[in-house]
């Protein structure tokens, strides 16, 4: 049986994993390669790295880091943040990443996503979307509008329409990052995730809000997510991957048991 994926997310800045935690922004957590190895050995199913300063500083992703991660872990990992063109996609994949994750680029230049999927294969193009709840259901029938640039810029795109468009463009997977739940550790946004998951045929990854194993149980069982991104709940040491997987197994969620 295909298992549900647990995907730790590492936000990297100047080659250090960092995480914004309430009251104290951007606490340094450690070396990205060492953390990748620890999570991989601990039983995570995949990893995602966001080079959080690449985009803002308009510089390319740290390719040397991607290569070092690829040398050290032998599970799939995605890299996002600052992917600006097909050449960036090529360099990230050639360095050993399984997937590239695009967000703003897809909104501003959908053609490049279709082109990337055609050249490199759908399986390695992931689209990240940042929907925010809106009461303007006339303009946004799904009740969510897509934002970019760290939720600062509204795009005028309806979330569900954009997800369907992404599927047509040929992306292999959609990461739904809930703006409203992000960083709260109060649970994934079930309604939003479910709406996207049941309306596309490609895998959907839930992101934002994961704080306890029960939150993952809900996002898999109620929202039909294929994978869930976790960050603070493991970065803080509150939970191990093994503990999360044990709770999921006990709740009947299919997970990878041997690693």
């Amino acid at each position: 049986m295909l298992t549900k994926r647990i995907v730790p997310c590492l936000d990297v800045r100047n080659r250090i994993v960092t995480k914004g935690i309430k009251f104290q922004n951007n606490v340094d957590l450690g070396d990205p390669v060492e953390m990748a190895v620890a999570y991989s050995d601990g039983g995570c199913d995949e990893l995602v790295f966001y080079d959080i300063t690449a985009s803002a500083e308009r510089r390319s992703i740290d390719i040397a880091m991607v290569r070092d991660v690829a040398r050290a872990v032998h599970i799939p990992f995605a890299v996002g943040g600052g992917i600006a063109d097909l050449d960036d996609m090529y360099r990230v994949l050639d360095a050993g990443a399984e997937k590239v994750s695009v967000n703003s680029l897809a909104v501003h230049n959908p053609d490049i996503i279709a082109e990337g999927a055609r050249i490199f294969g759908s399986q390695c193009i992931v689209i990240g979307m940042d929907p925010v709840k809106t009461s303007d259901t006339a303009a946004f029938p799904s009740g969510y509008e897509i934002t970019t640039r760290g939720f600062r810029e509204r795009t005028g795109l309806d979330a569900l329409e954009w997800a369907r468009r992404a599927e047509q463009l040929g992306v292999g997977e959609i990461v739904v990052n809930s703006v409203d739940a992000d960083g709260t550790r109060s649970g994934y946004e079930i309604e939003l995730t479910r709406m996207i998951a049941v309306n596309v045929r490609i895998p959907v990854v839930a992101s934002g809000g994961g704080g306890t194993p029960e939150h993952l149980v809900d996002v898999f069982n109620l929202a039909h997510a294929d994978a869930a991104i976790i960050a603070s709940m493991v970065h803080t040491g509150d939970y191990t991957i093994a503990a999360i997987k044990a709770a999921l197994a006990a709740a009947g969620v299919p997970i990878r048991k041997k690693w």
Partner: peptide
């Protein structure tokens, strides 16, 4: 079942 996603992506036995 249309909830079974294509491609199969992930770990299977």
């Amino acid at each position: 079942d249309k909830m079974v996603k294509i491609p199969q992506m992930g770990w299977n036995t």
